[in-house]
Design a protein around this nucleic acid. Structure first.
Length: 759
DNA sequence: AGCTCAGACGTTTAAACGTCATTGC
DNA sequence: CTGCACGAAACAAGCAATGACGTTTAAACGTCTGAGCT
C-alpha cells in the first residue's frame, strides 16, 4: 500500500480475487499480513460474487471488502479506460511498457504443482520471473497463491510480501501492474476524478457514470438546502427519445482543404444557455396558474417549457458551469506545463472534467437511472438538432460567390456538434482564415455560452460514409499534425491485424506520400503473400467480445460457436462472458458458414490445420480496401483483387481430413516437385545430375530454419526470465509465440526432407 | 406409341430483415 | 447455530450509424410427370 499512503489517503482497502476450488470452499482461509501483523483472515465463503453489467460489458468477478483498504483492480481500470484487443496482463504490458511476461495458462499450474520437485521449481520460476528463487515449500505456496490472485491482476503490495526479509523482489505479476499504475498515473488521475465528482475511488471502478452525476447533484442540492426525490418517476418506461442529427455524408476524396467547425461542449452549453434543469421545468398549467410572463420562460423545440435564469437558476447549469470553468483552468495549466509527466497528469484532469460535464446530459436521459427526466434530455437534443441545421444553412448561405467570396462553400458532412465545410479554396491557410471567420460569425447568432469554434482543417480528406472518414489533420498551416482516421478499420478491434495494417499502410501512402501506385503495389504484394500462405498467423487472428452467455445469443456467430466448442474441449481454457475471443478462419467444405470455420489459433497451430486465405481475401480484406480505393481509383476492384497476383496460390490440404485418409502419399522430386516412385526416394531422372546442388540447398534450408527457430526460442526464454528452462508460454497475444510455433513446424518439415537423402 | 407442354415440385439465388459488435459524438 | 425459502434492495449515462453475418422470404430456375395431341 506504499503508493496509496504516499497519496495521503486515509482509507485503505485491498481487493483480492481468488479462484476457489469447489472441494475446499469453506475451509480455505486467506490471511492478509501487513508489517508482521495479521490484519484479517477471510474464509473463502465470505467472498462475494459480483456481476458487473452496463456499458463496460458484463463481467463476473469475485470480491471481498476489507475495511481500511482502497481497492484498485487494474484489470477493471484497463477495461474501462482503454480499448484493446486483449486485456491479459501480458498484452497490456507489451502495449504500454514494451515488456512481456511469460503467459502460462492457469490450467497448467496445478499439474506443475502436483508434479515433482522439478516441475514445482519451474512453476516458481514462472511466478517470480526472477533468477533469485528458493525451492522451499513455503515459497511454492506463496507463488501459487500469487498466481491465483493475479488471474485478475490487482495491485498487491510487493512490500507486504517482502516483510519477512526475503529477497523476493520480483513478484512479476505484481510488479507489472504497479509499473502500469505508475506509468499511466492512475492514482493521480483517479484521485482527481474522485475529488471532482465527490465519490470514493472504488466507485470509479465498480460503478458507472451516473453515480458521479448524482453525487454532484446531491452536493449542490445540499448547499441550496434542497432535497432530491428518492422515488423513481413512475411510468418512465417509454424508452428512447430522438438523439442528434448526423448530416448526410457526401462521400468522396476531397483534394481541397476541409475546415471543421465544432461547438464547444455542445450539450452542456445548451443546458446552460437555456437554463435546463429539474427545478426549472414547468408545465403549461404552471405557467397559467403562476401567471408567468412569456418573457420569463423558454419553450424548447421539443415543446417543453423552462423558466429563465433570472427567475430561478437551475442546479444542473450551475454544476456544468463549475465543471467547465475548472476544465478551462486545467487546460490553461496544461498549456504551461513543460514536464511530460506533469502534462499527462493535467491532461487527465481536464479529460475527467470533460467527461463529467458530458455525462450530466446522459444522466437525465437514462430511464433506468435514479432520476430520469426525458424532458431535459430531449430538449437538449432538439436544440442540438436545430443548431447544426442552422449552422449548415448559415455557412452555405453566406459563403457564396454572390456574397463576394471566391467560391461557394459546401457542407460535406457533420455529426452532432460539427460541420465539415469545403470553402473551395486551395490552401490550408485560406481555409483556416475562412473557418475562423465563419466560426465567429455564426457564434454571434447564438446565446451565450454557446460557441462555435474553428478547430482544424482536413487536407486531403477521404469521406467514406457517416461516422467513417480519414484525413490529414492541420491545426497550423505549416505542417500537418497527424493522420486522423475515424470509424474505419484502422481503429476498430473486430478486424484481424492484417486488415488493420493493410488499411493503415494504404492510407499512409495515399494521404501522406500521395503515392497511389505505391499503395496499389503494396496491396498486391500483401494479397499475393496471403494467397501463397506466407502470412504470419498472428496477423490473421480476429477477436470479438463475448457479451453474453451462449444460450442468450439468437443467431450463430463465429466467436460464440467457437467459445462453445472450446468449452467442450476443455472448460478451463475456454473464454468466459466478458472475454474477447480470438479466432482464425480455417478451410472447410464449400458453402460452410463462417461460424463452422472458426477455430482457436493455438489449436490451429498445434494440429497443423490450414487456414482459408480465400476467406480472408473475400470477407476481410476486399471490402474495406474497396471502400478506400473506390473514390480514388477507377476499376479498383479489377485492379486490386483480380490481377495476376491472385493467380498463384498455395494449396494446402489438411493431412487429417476425411478424403486424405484414402489418398496414398507419394513422394515428389526435391528438385522439380514432379511425382516420383517411392523407390527413387529423392530426385527424378531429370534432376539426377543436380543431386549435390540440391542436397546443399536442403541443408542450407534446414540450418536457416534452425537458426530462426533458435532465435525465437531464445527470445521466449529471455521473456520468461530463464535460459535453462523449457518455454511453456502459450500466449495468444504474442506474435513471437505464433512465429516460434510456425518456425518449429517448418524446421521439422525441412528436417524430414533432409532425412530423405539418407539411404 | 411418341411427342409436346403446363404445372408440380425441388433446388439455387437474391433480397429483405434482424442480430451483434463496435464506433462517433 | 445452520440450512432453506422468500422477499427486498441495488444496479444500470444517451442515441446514431455502419457493416458483417445469419435467417427468412421471395423469385428464378431446372427437372419430372402426366394429360392431350398427332
Amino acid at each position: 500500500m506504499r503508493f496509496l499512503r504516499r497519496c495521503g489517503l486515509g482509507c485503505l482497502k485491498i481487493k483480492v480475487h481468488v479462484e476457489t476450488c469447489p472441494h475446499h470452499k469453506g475451509d480455505l482461509r486467506l490471511d492478509i499480513h501487513f508489517e508482521h501483523r495479521v490484519l484479517l483472515d477471510i474464509k473463502i465463503s465470505d467472498i462475494a460474487d459480483s456481476l458487473a453489467k452496463g456499458q463496460y460489458g458484463t463481467r463476473e468477478s469475485k470480491e471481498v471488502a476489507i475495511e481500511g483498504r482502497v481497492q484498485f483492480d487494474l484489470f477493471q481500470a484497463m477495461q474501462r479506460d482503454y480499448k484493446l484487443s486483449s486485456y491479459s496482463l501480458n498484452s497490456v504490458s507489451a502495449h504500454f511498457l514494451a515488456e512481456q511476461k511469460e503467459d502460462v495458462h492457469h490450467s497448467i499450474i496445478s499439474d506443475l504443482q502436483n508434479g515433482n520437485a522439478e516441475t514445482r521449481r519451474r512453476l516458481a520460476v514462472y511466478c517470480l520471473k526472477s533468477h533469485k528463487y528458493k525451492t522451499t515449500e513455503a515459497n511454492m505456496m506463496r507463488s501459487s497463491l500469487q498466481h491465483f490472485n493475479s488471474e485478475r491482476w490487482q495491485i498487491w503490495n510487493t512490500n507486504d510480501m517482502n516483510t519477512n526479509g526475503s529477497s523476493l523482489d520480483g513478484y512479476w505479476d505484481a510488479y507489472l501492474p504497479q509499473r502500469l499504475l505508475d506509468k499511466l498515473m492512475y492514482i493521480y488521475n483517479y484521485v482527481e476524478m474522485a475529488r471532482v465528482t465527490g465519490v470514493p475511488i472504488s466507485f470509479l471502478l465498480s460503478r458507472g457514470q451516473s453515480i458521479k452525476v448524482l453525487s454532484q447533484l446531491l452536493r449542490k442540492a445540499k448547499q441550496k438546502n434542497l432535497v432530491i426525490p428518492n422515488a423513481k418517476q413512475a411510468g418512465s418506461e417509454q424508452g428512447t427519445y430522438e438523439g442528434a442529427t448526423v448530416l448526410e455524408a457526401k462521400a468522396g476524396f476531397y483534394e481541397k482543404p476541409i475546415a471543421t467547425l465544432d461547438f464547444a461542449s455542445l450539450y452542456p452549453s445548451i443546458m446552460m444557455a437555456y437554463n435546463l434543469c429539474y427545478c426549472t421545468l414547468v408545465t403549461p398549467e404552471d405557467v397559467r396558474k403562476l401567471n408567468l410572463p412569456p418573457e420569463c420562460v423558454n419553450k424548447t423545440p421539443s415543446g417543453e417549457i423552462f423558466v429563465k435564469s433570472n427567475l430561478q437558476k437551475g442546479i444542473l447549469p450551475e454544476i456544468l458551469e463549475e465543471l467547465l470553468t475548472a476544465r478551462r483552468r486545467a487546460k490553461a495549466d496544461l498549456k504551461e506545463a513543460k514536464d511530460p509527466l506533469e502534462k499527462a497528469v493535467l491532461d487527465g484532469r481536464q479529460l475527467a472534467l470533460k467527461i463529467s460535464a458530458n455525462s450530466v446530459y446522459g444522466f437525465t436521459g437514462a430511464t433506468v437511472a435514479q432520476l430520469p427526466c426525458l424532458e431535459i434530455s430531449s430538449s437538449v437534443t432538439s436544440y442540438g438538432r436545430q443548431m447544426i441545421e442552422h449552422t449548415k444553412k448559415l455557412v452555405e448561405d453566406r459563403f457564396t460567390t454572390v456574397g463576394g467570396y471566391e467560391h461557394n462553400a459546401e457542407v460535406v458532412y457533420g455529426d452532432t456538434d460539427s460541420v465539415m465545410v469545403q470553402f473551395g479554396v486551395p490552401t490550408v491557410e485560406a481555409a483556416m482564415s475562412l473557418g475562423r471567420e465563419a466560426a465567429e460569425y455564426i457564434s454571434g447568432t447564438f446565446i451565450k455560452p454557446i460557441k462555435l469554434e474553428f478547430e482544424k482543417v482536413y487536407y486531403p480528406y477521404l469521406l467514406i460514409s457517416k461516422k467513417r472518414y480519414a484525413g490529414l489533420l492541420w491545426t497550423n498551416s505549416n505542417k500537418f499534425d497527424k493522420m486522423d482516421t475515424k470509424g474505419i478499420e484502422t481503429v476498430r478491434r473486430d478486424n484481424c491485424l492484417l486488415v488493420k495494417n493493410l488499411v493503415t499502410e494504404c492510407l499512409h501512402k495515399i494521404l501522406i506520400d500521395q503515392d497511389i501506385p505505391g499503395a496499389v503495389q503494396f496491396v498486391k504484394s500483401t494479397i499475393s503473400d496471403l494467397l501463397m500462405n506466407r502470412m504470419d498467423l498472428s496477423l490473421l487472428v480476429i477477436t470479438k467480445g463475448l457479451t453474453k452467455t451462449g444460450d442468450d445469443y439468437e443467431v450463430k456467430a463465429a466467436h460464440v460457436e467457437l467459445a462453445e466448442r472450446m468449452r467442450k474441449r476443455d472448460a478451463a481454457t475456454a473464454p468466459n462472458v466478458g472475454d474477447r475471443v480470438p479466432y482464425v478462419i480455417i478451410k472447410a467444405a464449400k458453402g460452410a458458414k463462417a461460424y463452422e470455420k472458426s477455430e482457436d489459433p493455438i489449436y490451429v497451430l498445434e494440429n497443423n490445420i490450414p487456414i482459408d486465405p480465400q476467406y480472408y481475401l473475400e470477407n476481410q480484406i476486399s471490402k474495406p480496401l474497396l471502400r478506400i480505393f473506390e473514390p480514388i481509383l477507377k476499376n479498383a476492384s479489377k485492379e486490386l483483387l483480380h490481377g495476376s497476383h491472385t493467380r498463384s496460390i498455395s494449396i494446402s490440404t489438411p493431412s487429417n481430413s476425411g478424403i486424405m485418409k484414402f489418398a496414398k502419399k507419394q513422394l515428389s522430386c526435391i528438385g522439380c516437385k514432379a511425382l516420383i516412385s517411392n523407390t527413387d526416394r529423392t530426385v527424378c531422372s531429370h534432376c539426377k545430375g543436380r543431386e549435390a546442388e540440391l542436397y546443399c540447398k536442403t541443408v542450407d534450408n534446414v540450418s536457416e530454419l534452425e537458426m530462426l527457430f533458435g532465435k525465437l526460442w531464445t527470445q521466449c526464454q529471455d521473456c520468461q526470465g530463464s535460459l535453462h528452462q523449457d518455454v511453456l508460454c502459450t500466449s495468444r497475444d504474442c506474435p513471437i509465440f505464433y512465429r516460434r510455433k510456425k518456425a518449429q513446424k517448418d524446421m521439422a518439415e525441412a528436417k524430414l526432407q533432409l532425412d530423405r537423402w539418407k539411404f
